[in-house]
Structure formats: structure tokens, C-alpha cells
Amino acid sequence: MTATRTSQDILEQDFLKIRCLILDLAASLDRIDRGEGADHIADHEQMKLLQGGLDLLKEDGPGRAAKVQLHFSDQYEEGWNEGED
């Protein structure tokens, strides 16, 4: 199944929604920065995860959503159940 709308349609229809999402993100990061101890937060594990997630948004699509999902996922080990009874 293919998309029912052209890229331009989607852009025009969703522009304000996406702008709002970007603003939400910016304000959320500002909120962290305004908090006490902001100087040391960059090394925090969750902060690094968020930063990695943001970097993925700049990659070429489609497939960004799945990449972001995997970025925030535990590692799976192939063959984890071999040798069990």
C-alpha cells in the first residue's frame, strides 16, 4: 500500500504540527538547562540517549522512526535460547 497524499500535501497539512513538535522539544531541552546542576547533565546516560535520538532525526528517511525506536531499545542477543532445555 502506498501513501494517499503527495509529499507536498503532507508538508502543507502537517507543517504547523511539526513546528509545534520541534518547539516542544526545544522547550523541553531548555527546561533541563534551566534546572540546577545543568553544567553536569551532559554526561548523564539519559541525556546522551536523547542526544543520540536527536542526531537520528537529521538522517535521511524514511525509516527514522524505526531507527529512533531501536536507539532506545535493549540489545537482543541472537541464540540466547540455544542450549536451554
Binding site: L70, F72, S73, D74, Y76, W80, N81
Partner: peptide, 18 residues
């Protein structure tokens, strides 16, 4: 849900395939 989902889904499929 969340970060456990990918690994958990793979494990579930592995166990069904047993």
C-alpha cells in the same frame, strides 16, 4: 513496552519457533 519491546519481541518469536 518501551526499551524492552524489541528484545522481548525477538525472544517471543524465538520461543514460538521452538
Amino acid at each position: 513496552h518501551l526499551w524492552d519491546k524489541y528484545k522481548g519481541t525477538r525472544m517471543i518469536i524465538d520461543m514460538i519457533k521452538e
